[in-house]
Design a protein around this nucleic acid. Structure first.
Length: 548
RNA sequence: GCGCCCAUAGCUCAGGUGGAUAGAGCAACAGACUUCUAAUCUGUGGGUCGCGGGUUCGAGUCCUGCUGGGCGCGCCA
C-alpha cells in the first residue's frame, strides 16, 4: 500500500463517518513543503454537491480522520486544501516495502492473468526496418512489458504481409539487379524497390541459384526469387529486432489466412450480418453503418480480395485465439484505417472496445543540428540497423519512448551518442552505476552490508533523504499512470527525476562513514533507489550497467 | 474540402480523470572534486501556455471558432 493510498483511505473513512458517499478521492504530492508532503482537493469536488464551502467540508473531514498506522504528524487546512504532514516513520515504511518487494516493487496482479495480444512493427517484408519501425517497436515492446507488470499474459505478434503486388515488385526488382550483376540486358521495374539492399539480395540469389534459374519459365523464377527475397528480408528484420531487444512470440503470415480459408469465413460473417452489398462490380462493406466515413471494398471487381478483407480475417483469427484484449500499434500514416477496423470488428460480432488501436507519430532524425533527409523513393531510408550500430540499443530504445506517442519525435543522433550529462540515458544509468559502486566500495571496506536490511531507519531525516524517498514512493503510481494512459514516456521522465534526486542526495551527504547507524540507514536508501531504477529500466528494456 | 495528431521558456519537451505560485533537460552565466564514480552537484536569469469566445469557485487541461504545421482521405499494401 502506498502512502497516497493510505491517506485517500483515511479521507474515505472520514467521509463515510459523516455519511457522505464519494469514491473519487485523490491524494497528490505537493508543490511546496509549506503545503505538507501530500494534499487532497476533495473538498472542492464535494463543495458543489454538498452546497457547503470547501473549508467547512475540509474541517468535517479532518475532524473525523483516523490514523490507525500512526503515520500522520499533522493535518492543516489551507485555502480549502487538506495538507498532510507525515511522520518520518511513514517514509521508512517505503524503504521497507521496496526492500521486501525488490524486483516486484511496482508490480500488480490486476490483469489476473488475462490473455492479451499486442501486435506491432508488422513491417512489410520488402526492405529492412527503418527508424519509424523502431519507434513502433520500442513503444509496443515497452507497453507489452507494462502489461506483464500488471499481471497480464501477453503475446507479442508481428504480422507479415507476405502477399500482394508489393511482393511481386520485390521479385521483379531482385531479378533486374541479378541481370545487372550478370551483365544481362535488364529493365528496372517501374515502382520497383531502389534500395541498395536489393543488390545485396540479388548477389545472394546469384550465388544460391546459379545459372539454372534462368532456364525456368519467368513465372516460376519470380516465384522462387520472391520466396528467397522475402525470407532473406524477414531474417534481417528478425535479427534487427533481436538486437533491439525485441522478441516476438509469433510471426503471423498473411498467406496463412488464405490457406486457412479465413477470408471467406470472415466475409461470410459480414454477409450474413447484412453488412455487404455489390456496386460497380465489387463487393463492399457498409462500414459507414458503424461510423466510418465511407464504405470499403472487400472484393474487387476482378474477383480478388483486398488487403482490408485479409485484415478483417486476421482480426477474426485474433479473437478466435482467445485474447480478451487486442492491441494494434500503427504509424500515423495508418490512422485513417482505425474507424474501418473498429467497424469490422463490431460487424464480426465482437466488442469494439476490446480492440485498441495505438497510433504513434512520425520520427525525424537529426544530426549536427539539422534534419537527416530520407526518401523512400530513392531507397534512402535510414535503417534501424544503422541507428542501432551508431547509438546502441539502450539509447535507441530510451529515445524512442521518451516522447508522447501522439507527438512527433525529433531523434537527436548526436545527443543519443553523447556519454555525458546531456544524455538522459546515461544520466539515469549513471545513477544506477553509482549505487552499485557504493556497494562494491562497502565490500572493499569489509562493511557488513546485510545489516542495512534490519537497521534503524529513523536516522534518515535530511530533507534530501526524505525527498528521495517520496520520489521512490511515487514509482508504483507513475507506472500505473503510464500504463493506463499507454504513455511510457512518463516512465522515462520519472527515472530522470529519480536519478536527479539521487545524485543530489549523493553529492551532499556521505553514505559510507564512521557513524554506523547513519551509514546503514543510508545504505538501505541506496539499495531501494538502485532497485527502483533497475525496475524502471527493465520495463523500458534498457540495461542497468553496474559499472560505467 | 473532410478526418486524425500537434502548438507551453531561445531549443527539445513534461504537465492521468480541471486544483494552490505552469515544471524539467539543453543552451547562457556564476560556483563546488585531499572524499563513496565530476558521466555528478549548487545557484542565477528566462513564459500573453498559438489567437478569440464559452463552461465555473477554479482552465495549459473541458467545449467552440480561427491560425499555423504534420499525417491521411485507392477496387495499393
Amino acid at each position: 500500500m502506498t502512502l497516497k493510498r493510505y491517506l485517500a483511505d483515511r479521507i474515505l473513512d472520514a467521509l463515510n463517518k459523516i455519511n457522505i458517499k464519494f469514491t473519487e478521492v485523490l491524494v497528490d504530492r505537493t508543490q511546496s513543503p509549506e503545503f505538507g508532503h501530500y494534499a487532497s482537493s476533495v473538498s472542492f469536488n464535494l463543495s458543489k454537491i454538498l452546497k457547503k464551502s470547501p473549508y467547512e467540508i475540509a474541517k468535517d473531514i479532518v475532524g473525523n480522520l483516523t490514523d490507525p498506522s500512526e503515520l500522520i504528524d499533522k493535518v492543516e487546512i489551507k485555502n480549502g486544501f487538506i495538507n498532510f504532514f507525515l511522520k518520518e516513520k511513514a517514509f521508512h515504511l517505503v524503504i521497507k516495502e521496496i526492500i521486501k518487494e525488490k524486483e516486484n516493487y511496482g508490480r500488480s496482479n490486476e490483469g489476473k492473468g488475462e490473455k492479451i495480444q499486442i501486435e506491432f512493427v508488422s513491417a512489410n517484408p520488402s526492405g529492412p526496418l527503418h527508424v519509424g519501425n523502431g519507434r513502433g517497436g520500442a513503444l509496443g515492446d515497452v507497453l507489452a512489458n507494462m502489461f506483464e507488470w500488471f499481471g497480464y499474459k501477453v503475446e507479442r505478434e508481428f504480422y507479415v504481409n507476405d502477399m500482394g503486388t508489393q511482393m511481386n515488385l520485390l521479385a521483379l526488382s531482385v531479378e533486374a539487379r541479378m541481370k545487372e550483376l550478370l551483365g544481362m540486358p535488364f529493365e528496372f521495374p517501374e515502382d520497383g524497390y531502389h534500395g541498395e539492399y536489393i543488390k545485396d539480395i540479388a548477389k545472394l540469389a546469384v550465388e544460391k541459384f546459379g545459372n539454372d534459374i534462368w532456364n525456368l519459365p519467368q513465372e516460376e523464377r519470380l516465384e522462387r526469387l520472391k520466396e528467397f527475397a522475402k525470407d532473406t528480408i524477414l531474417e534481417w528484420q528478425r535479427e534487427d529486432l533481436e538486437d533491439f531487444g525485441i522478441r516476438f512470440d509469433c510471426w503471423y503470415k498473411e498467406s496463412s489466412l488464405h490457406k486457412k480459408g479465413l477470408l471467406k469465413e470472415a466475409f461470410e460473417i459480414l454477409k450474413a450480418g447484412g453488412y455487404t452489398y455489390e456496386k460497380d462490380g465489387a463487393v463492399w462493406f457498409a462500414s459507414t453503418r458503424f461510423g466510418d466515413e465511407k464504405d470499403r471494398v472487400l472484393i474487387k471487381s476482378d474477383g480478388s480480395s483486398t488487403y482490408f478483407l485479409a485484415d478483417i480475417a486476421y482480426h477474426l483469427d485474433k479473437y478466435r485465439r482467445g485474447f480478451s484484449r487486442i492491441i494494434d500499434i500503427w504509424g500515423a500514416d495508418h490512422h485513417g484505417h482505425v474507424p474501418r477496423m473498429k467497424a469490422s470488428v463490431e460487424a464480426l460480432g465482437y466488442d469494439p472496445n476490446t480492440l485498441e488501436l495505438i497510433i504513434y507519430q512520425i520520427v525525424h532524425l537529426f544530426r549536427g543540428g539539422s534534419a537527416v533527409r530520407m526518401s523512400k523513393r530513392a531507397g534512402e531510408m535510414v535503417t534501424l540497423r544503422e541507428l542501432l550500430d551508431e547509438v546502441g540499443k539502450d539509447a535507441a530504445r530510451y529515445f524512442f519512448v521518451m516522447r508522447d506517442p501522439n507527438s512527433q519525435l525529433d531523434f537527436d543522433i548526436d545527443l543519443a551518442k553523447t556519454q555525458s550529462t546531456n544524455n538522459p540515458v546515461y544520466y539515469v544509468q549513471y545513477a544506477f552505476a553509482r549505487c552499485c559502486s557504493l556497494f562494491k566500495q562497502a565490500e572493499v571496506r569489509k562493511i557488513e552490508t546485510e545489516k542495512m536490511f534490519n537497521c534503524d531507519l529513523s536516522y534518515l531525516k535530511d530533507p534530501l533523504e526524505i525527498e528521495l524517498i517520496i520520489t521512490l514512493e511515487d514509482f508504483p503510481d507513475i507506472l500505473r499512470n503510464a500504463f493506463y494512459n499507454r504513455a511510457p514516456h512518463r516512465l522515462t521522465f520519472y527515472l530522470e527525476s529519480l536519478a536527479k534526486s539521487f545524485h543530489s542526495f549523493y553529492n551532499s551527504l556521505r553514505i559510507l562513514q564512521e557513524e554506523e547507524s547513519v551509514m546503514y540507514a543510508r545504505m538501505a536508501l541506496v539499495f531501494a533507489t538502485q532497485q527502483v531504477i533497475k525496475n524502471g529500466l527493465d520495463i523500458i528494456g534498457v540495461s542497468a550497467p553496474e559499472k560505467m
